[in-house]
């Protein structure tokens, strides 16, 4: 089996056209690989470019140069050069993502938001909703909230909806952007267990975790992002 994800010579800068075209380099020559069944953690201080790397991998940020090679249905595909349609197909089947904040869709219930990725893959609605209930109950989201849109939920409640949505599918690669940031100890422990199960199922994970305890519990590999820091302009 091919390595699920290989990043090489990845560079990113922002050009701020509204600020006289200032160029802000954020990542220079990032290179690493993820292994199936392992969780890699992006380490480094705030502003080192951890989130930028995650967003490039998921296609939210454009890439200046370099490759992000993903094993998509057995075909090696460069996410950095993929067309929008290919990016959407890779996201649907191969690359999952738990973002830091839930993007709330008006009027859609928590249960449906969690079930949506399964429905998008053509799964049966009853089955998708059943899995959605299982995950929300495992993450201790009170049942009275399940049928409500999460707009009015607390930060921790929204984050658990987000985690359930990201974990419901069997994507071979899963990106985690601080999934435990606003969770209490009980729910952090649940997420640690869920990550362990993903590893056991052969999923390759890449995450940003600011809690020391979570990081120590899940990390098989620490990728030090400061190695990819752009040289400071003289």
């Amino acid at each position: 089996m091919a390595t699920p994800l290989v990043v090489s010579e990845l560079c990113k800068s922002f050009t701020m056209h509204l600020r006289d075209g200032i160029r802000l380099p954020v990542v220079d020559n990032a290179r690493f690989a993820l292994q199936a069944g392992e969780c890699a953690v992006l380490g480094g201080p705030s502003g080192a470019g951890k989130s930028s790397i995650l967003k490039m991998l998921y296609g939210n940020y454009a890439v200046d140069s370099g490759q992000i090679i993903i094993d998509h249905h057995g075909t090696l595909t460069d996410m950095a050069a993929a067309s929008p349609r290919e990016v959407l197909a890779i996201r649907r089947d191969t690359l999952g993502y738990v973002s830091q904040f839930l993007r709330v869709v008006p009027r859609v219930s928590a249960l449906d938001i969690v079930a949506e990725p399964l429905l998008a893959r053509g799964r049966d609605r009853t089955e998708a909703l059943a899995r959605s209930r299982d995950l929300l109950s495992r993450l201790n989201l009170p049942e009275r909230l399940w049928d409500l849109p999460p707009a009015t939920f607390s930060g921790g409640e929204q984050q658990r909806v987000n985690i359930a949505r990201g974990f419901i599918t069997r994507h071979p690669i899963l990106l985690l952007d601080e999934p435990t940031a606003s969770l209490d100890a009980t729910n952090r422990a649940v997420v640690i267990d869920m990550i362990a199960e993903k590893k056991a199922a052969g999923v390759a994970l890449l995450g940003i975790f600011h809690d020391q305890d979570v990081r120590e519990a899940v990390a098989d590999q620490i990728i030090d992002v400061t190695d990819f820091a752009p040289a400071k302009a003289a």
Binding site: T15, M16, H17, L18, G59, N60, Y61, A62, P84, V87
Partner: peptide, 21 residues
């Protein structure tokens, strides 16, 4: 022209940057 997420999260053209900001 591109993936909606990408255009909104990382706009490239000066005009798109103005719109998003």
């Amino acid at each position: 022209h591109g993936l909606t997420d990408r255009v909104l999260d990382d706009p490239q053209a000066p005009y798109t940057q103005l719109l998003v900001s």
